[in-house]
Design a protein around this nucleic acid. Sequence first.
RNA 1: GGCCGAGUGGCGCAAUUGGUUAGCGUACCAGACUGUCGAUCUGGUGGUCGCGGGUUCGAAUCCCGUCUCGGUCGCCA
Length: 601
Amino acid sequence: MIRTHTCGELRKEHAGQEVTLAGWVQNRRDHGGVMFIDLRDRYGLTQIKLDLDKSEVLELGQHVRNEWVLKVTGKVLERPEDMYNPKMITGQIELDVDSFEVISRSEVIPFETDEYSKAGEEIRMRYRYLDLRRPQMQRNFEVRHKAIAAIRKVMDEQGFLEIETPILGKSTPEGARDYLVPSRVHHGEYYALPQSPQIFKQILMVGGCDRYYQIARCFRDEDLRADRQPEFTQFDLEMSFAEPDDIFAIIENCMAEAFKAGIGAEVKGPFERMDYAAAIRDYGCDKPDLRFDMKLSEITDLVTECGFKVFSAVAASGGVIKALVAKGCQENYSRKDLDGLHEVIKCHGAKGLAWIKILPGGEYNGAPVKFFEKEQLDAIAARTGATEGDIMMFMADTAHIVNNSLATLRNKWGEMENLYKKDDFHFVWITDFPLFEWSEEHNRWESSHHPFTMIHPEDADQLLGAENKKGGNLGGIRSTSYDLVLNGVELASGSVRIHDSEIQAKIFSLLGISEEEAKERFGFFIDALKYGTPPHAGIAPGVDRMVAMMLGYDNIREVIAFPKNQKAMDLMTGAPAGVDEKQLRDLAIQNVAIQQPKKDA
RNA sequence: GGCCGAGUGGCGCAAUUGGUUAGCGUACCAGACUGUCGAUCUGGUGGUCGCGGGUUCGAAUCCCGUCUCGGUCGCCA
């Protein structure tokens, strides 16, 4: 190594030693007769001093600029006590430079990289290599590494084998859109990049691999979000002879170790559990943020016969009316504020939001009040738990719209009123998801998780004679599945799998996948199930989201070294991009659409 | 695909809501300075207000179209 120490290493114990550092120029402060340069590397900053008594060194220093790479040699000096810099871990020393060498110069950088920089994402992505130099980014990737390393350690101790599965696979046109890779050898045929290693990991169980895991890249060609990238990383695992409790214990252990190793946070298992039905009932969604309380209450039965048509009409038509109570907020929200909340939820199709305040003294205030008897209002308040000083907010619509809207409103309220601490980590297992969900688009029931999910044992007999038609009983059938939710974010999804080829066939037929079709798509898999399949279960936490949560981001691009933008482009490399005609000819591919001319990369 | 927000020197933002020569911070360049640490001080360079069209005596500002970026809904088994 051309250095003897790193820029984060020297302390006053090193005073008097002759050392060599190498790093980037973070900052230069020229006082004429003395100059200070903060030299930066992955490990920290060290102040180096160029003094007039070595005038040739000082002269050289005048030409140095930010982001140049220097190698400096000199003596470590303890600073006079009144010149300690408590903001720097190396702030008690400085390096008195005897000689230095410019290893590499830098052009003027296109955006500032210091800790105060407010550069926008577009410029950061385009010059990601500069962005990555920032201490914050360096920390992000250190945390990510440590968390993953901790997971690998736990999995090793628990006897899991890390096994790789193919990236070039077969398209199984269920679920998300696939990324396709054309075959040069088989013209007109395509590999698909894995949406997850799902089928392979189950086959590993059939193959007796017992305990498998992998830090796996997954690919889904769908529209992106702050927490969704076209390629992302899952901590994928599968266990034979396991029950949900076994999976929960492993993951709780992994999360505890990952959060401890990553950010030093104490996360204790066992995590709280809540079934899907309760989550929807109490929070309106399957990923409740349990850092704060504020449950929904259904009041449909209390308002079926009231003068307030908005409620009674919805109740009569089979909709629901639910309420959300904002404790102690009566004074802080004006009529205008409350009416403005409609903006927050109208994206879910909410037509309006009704509200009633309970004033000090118990008087009700709000537009709907005049349509109710006092006793009715008292009953509603009793049901929702609202008391003096509170605001009751109501939604009346289909269950779907009411739940979505109030869940969004609840999260918004928690944020506005600071009902939780940002660094509080509240995990919860959501269990027993419905096995099927109705697809309006395809006008049929589809798997809500994936078609290999085991039915809930208590609901097994409901599969007999079931039919895939609207209004049928499929919606009520539960699965043995579970999500891990952290602070309102879905971190992982998993289930017990079907290990019986007959049940698997029954599920396929219920899903409207014919025998021939099933054979064509998953024939190898159905065959595999026929040769002695152990019961097995698994789960797959999202690594990007997990690390983002640790660091307090809601944007996973901050914890991915080279992420893509909202249009799935890599602004640094310019991918995706056109290719040579020859490449296309080799693959027997022709462009049918005129390519949009792209902005210069 | 829908909706919302944004686009102004290299970067981050402003422009009293249509009014004179488009400002501020920072970066950059030059100079000064022997203890700074987001150094300071003095001076300076740098802008086709994303692009195209329209309204107007006059447009960064209003209208139409278009492109780009972000958020979100749909979508994401």
